Simulated scan of single mutants.
Amino acid sequence: MMQKKNRAFLKWAGGKYSLVEHIQARLPQANKLIEPFVGAGSVFLNTQYKRYLLNDINPDLINLYNFLKAQPDALINDARAFFCAERNQEAMYYALREEFNQTKDEYYRAILFLYLNRHGYNGLCRYSLQGRFNVPFGRYKKPYFPENEMFIFSEKSQKATFTCLPFEQVFTRARRGNVIYCDPPYAPISKTAAFTSYASKSFGQDSQERLAELAAITSKKRGIPVLISNHDLPLTRTLYKGADFSMLSVKRSISQNGAKRQPASEILAYFPPAKVLPKKRKRTRNTLQFTSVVPSSNQQP
C-alpha cells in the first residue's frame, strides 16, 4: 500500500501527482531512480528508492532544489516574506520579475523563482528565446506558501543528487541496478498545442526521437530499465515500438482556457532490461590441460 501522497511545492505544467500510483506500479525495484526530466518532483516524492539522480535542463529549478537541500531553514524563512499582500500586486510582481531576470545572485534567484511560480499566471514556467522569464501576473487572491511541502522535499532530497544537464548525458550516468523514469515535454496533440518552453531551449521531434532511441539502447544493450510518460499518439507508439504500453487518461490541470481542460490519453512505455551476460574469459584447451598437470610454483612439495 502506498503511504500518504506528498505534493510538490511548485506548480508545474504536466505534474505527475495524480498519476504517481500508476507510475509507481510500473517502476521496478532498483538501488537508484534516475529522472532526466524531474520537473516538480512528484515521482521522486512518492517513491521509496535508496538514492536518486534528479536532473532538469532548467538551471533555475535545479538552483532552487540545491539551496532547499543545503539550507532549508534559511531559504524557507526568507521566501516566506515574499508571500504577503504588498508583493501580491501587479506592479510589484513585474518589478520582482525584472529583478529575477537581472540578478546574478543565485540565492536571491532561488527565492524569486519560487515567488514567480506561485504568483505567476497558472503556475507556468516560460522563458523567451533570450532566456528571460516572461509569465504574466496571476491575479490570485492569496497565493499559497508551501512551507510544509518544502520541508518534506528538503528532507527527502538528502538522498538525491541534482544536476542540470542534457538528458543524453544523464543516461550515460546510469548503471546496472538503476532504473530511469522519463517525463519529457510531451509530443504535441496538435500543431498549436506544443508547449516546450520550460527552459529556453525547445524539445522538438528530433529530441523525442533521440530519447526513444536512447531508451531502447539503454534497456537492450546495458540492461537498465526505462519508463517513459507521453501523450498516447500514433507518433509516440511508433517511437516506442517494442516497449510494454500502459494507457492512462488524465485531466489537464494547467490550460489557458479552463473550459478546454479535457481528459487526454497518456501512455506509459516500459522498456524492460535485457539480460546482459558478463563477458567470460576465454581459455583454450591447451591452457586447461597445462594448469591441470603442472603444479603452481608457490605450492609446497
Results as ranks from 00 to 15, higher is better:
Ile152Cys: 06
Lys142His: 12
Cys84Ile: 12
Phe171Tyr: 12
Arg132Ser: 13
Glu149Arg: 08
Leu124Val: 10
Tyr93Cys: 03
Ala187Asn: 11
Gly177Asn: 10
Asp78Phe: 05
Gln169Asn: 13
Thr172Cys: 11
Tyr140Trp: 05
Lys141Val: 03
Ala74Ile: 15
Asp78Val: 00
Tyr115Gly: 04
Arg118Ser: 01
Ala91Arg: 12
Tyr121Trp: 14
Lys159Trp: 05
Ala194Met: 14
Gly177Asp: 06
Tyr127Ala: 00
Met92Gly: 02
Ala79His: 00
Pro146Asp: 01
Tyr107Arg: 03
Phe113Asn: 05
Gly120Thr: 03
Leu165Phe: 09
Phe151Ser: 07
Arg80His: 14
Glu98Asp: 14
Phe153Gly: 07
Pro185Asp: 02
Leu96Pro: 07
Gly131Ala: 08
Glu155Ile: 09
Ala91Val: 13
Gly123Asp: 01
Leu75Gly: 00
Pro185Arg: 01
Ala194Asn: 12
Phe82Val: 07
Ser128Cys: 04
Cys182Ser: 10
Leu75Glu: 07
Tyr93Glu: 09
Gln102Arg: 13
Glu149Lys: 10
Gln102Leu: 12
Ala91Cys: 05
Gln102Phe: 08
Ser128Gly: 02
Glu168Leu: 13
Glu98Arg: 12
Leu114Ser: 01
Phe162Lys: 06
Arg109Cys: 03
Leu129Arg: 15
Leu114Pro: 06
Leu116Cys: 09
Met150Phe: 11
Leu165Tyr: 10
Glu90Gln: 15
Ala85Trp: 11
Gln130Phe: 10
Asn178Trp: 10
Glu155Trp: 11
Glu90Asn: 12
Ile189His: 11
Asp78Thr: 04
Gly177Ile: 06
Asp183Tyr: 07
Glu147Asp: 13
Phe145Ser: 06
Asp78Leu: 03
Asn101Met: 04
Ala79Met: 03
Leu116Lys: 02
Thr103Lys: 06
Ala194Phe: 12
Tyr127Trp: 07
Val135Ala: 05
Asn77Tyr: 12
Cys84Trp: 03
Asn77Lys: 12
Val170Met: 08
Met92Tyr: 15
Tyr186Trp: 13
Tyr93Ala: 02
Phe153Glu: 04
Tyr144Pro: 00
Asn77Arg: 09
Ile180Ser: 05
Gln71Phe: 09
Ala160His: 00
Lys141Thr: 09
Phe167Gly: 00
Leu165Lys: 11
Glu99Met: 06
Asn88Phe: 08
Asn148Ile: 08
Met92Val: 15
Glu106Thr: 14
Lys142Asn: 11
Asn148Ser: 13
Tyr140Asp: 00
Lys141Ser: 10
Gly123Thr: 03
Ala85Ile: 10
Asn117Phe: 11
Tyr127Lys: 02
Phe113Val: 01
Ala85Leu: 13
Ala81Ser: 15
Tyr94Val: 09
Ser154Val: 01
Ala194Asp: 12
Phe145Gln: 05
Thr192Gly: 01
Glu149Leu: 06
Arg175Ser: 14
His119Arg: 05
Tyr107Ala: 01
Lys104His: 12
Arg80Gly: 03
Glu168Pro: 07
Pro166His: 09
Gln130Glu: 13
Pro143Gly: 08
Ala160Asp: 00
Leu129Trp: 09
Arg97Tyr: 10
Tyr93Asn: 07
Glu99Ser: 06
Ala79Arg: 02
Thr163Met: 01
Asn101Gly: 03
Ala85Asn: 13
Lys104Pro: 04
Tyr186Ile: 05
Pro143Ile: 01
Phe162Ile: 07
